Computed example of a mutant assay.
Amino acid sequence: MQPFDLSHPLATDMPVYPGTEPIGVERRATREADGYQTTRLDLDSHAGTHVDAPAHLTDGPSLDEFTPDRLRFEAAAVDLRPCDPRERVGVDALRDSLPGVVDPDEIDLLAVVTGWDRYWGEERYFDHPYLTADAARWLAECECDLGVDTVNPDPTPTENADPSEPDGFPVHEALFDADRLIVENLRGLDRVPNHFELHAYPLQFADADASPVRAVAYAGNEER
């Protein structure tokens, strides 16, 4: 099976959700000076490509309560491109974009392809498309997790936000209430086929609300 790395590399001052502490990746020792090499990582649990657990916003389970098998997903990609900035994505858009061979009741995760990962590192990245609460509730009813190539499946507050946009995190809450997971800041979803396997294993620490992951898609020879 062909692997596709869907992760943004961790780097100093990489994009983070507004208000989050910046990321630092600092070389602390080198082979030339010290005889060995070490690197210090300063990062939030929601840094880079990461997976959110219900404990992020609710009294639901933390990541360490999920077995490794739960972080390996049978996934389907729904291609919504081209998307407008801050475009609402509802249930119909997801259903209409589902590949004909895919039954939402037979997959673990729906990967929403907006193409917004091409704006990584730009201010525009935060004016991404977002899902409606109804779309999230539909995913929850299908017992389906969510993957996005944006920083947030809910609207992210910026100066371009419209007053009609929902406050808070209704998509997160609808999915977390059903003990679903959310993988954020994916990249390169346009390279994967309609149906693929996604591995997104988090770091192991107690009461983890989220964790950076190395998100890797595995696919056969199917073409998009």
Rank of each mutant, 00 (worst) to 15 (best):
P9G: 10
R31A: 14
T38Y: 01
P22F: 01
A133Y: 06
W116Q: 06
R88W: 15
A75R: 03
F196V: 00
D96K: 08
A161E: 04
Y218L: 14
P202W: 05
P104S: 05
A217T: 11
P157H: 07
N194H: 12
D162L: 10
V148I: 13
D84A: 15
L6N: 03
T39I: 12
M1W: 12
C144V: 12
A11R: 15
R95C: 10
I182R: 04
G168F: 01
G19Y: 07
R28Y: 00
S62D: 04
A55L: 11
L10N: 07
D105S: 13
T39W: 13
F66T: 03
D127P: 04
R70C: 04
L98N: 09
N221I: 06
E143D: 15
E223P: 04
P15I: 01
G168W: 02
Y125C: 01
V91R: 09
D149A: 06
E223D: 12
A133M: 10
P163C: 06
Y36L: 13
D13S: 14
D92M: 08
P15Y: 03
M14K: 05
G115N: 03
R31V: 15
V51N: 12
V171Y: 11
H8V: 10
A11C: 08
E32P: 00
G220W: 03
W120K: 05
P82E: 12
A75T: 15
E222T: 14
S7Y: 05
T39Q: 06
P155K: 01
A76P: 12
E122C: 04
A111K: 03
R31T: 12
P9C: 04
A135N: 07
D134S: 14
D108A: 05
Y130E: 08
D59M: 05
Y36E: 09
S164W: 06
Q37R: 12
T150L: 02
T49N: 13
D13W: 09
E159Y: 05
F176K: 05
D209L: 00
A47E: 10
D207G: 10
V151H: 09
M14I: 04
A33P: 04
M1I: 11
A11E: 15
E141M: 07
P193S: 13
Y36M: 08
P54A: 02
Q37W: 14
R187F: 02
C144E: 04
A210H: 01
Y119I: 00
S164G: 10
F73I: 12
D179E: 15
D96G: 00
D34H: 15
D167E: 13
R31E: 14
R70V: 07
P193T: 14
A174P: 10
L181W: 09
L139K: 07
V101Q: 13
P68M: 06
E122D: 15
V216G: 00
G35S: 03
E87C: 07
R28H: 05
R72G: 06
H56Q: 13
H128T: 07
P22R: 09
W138P: 07
G188C: 08
L186V: 09
L10I: 13
T158V: 11
D149H: 08
V89A: 10
V113T: 12
F205Q: 08
E197K: 02
H128P: 06
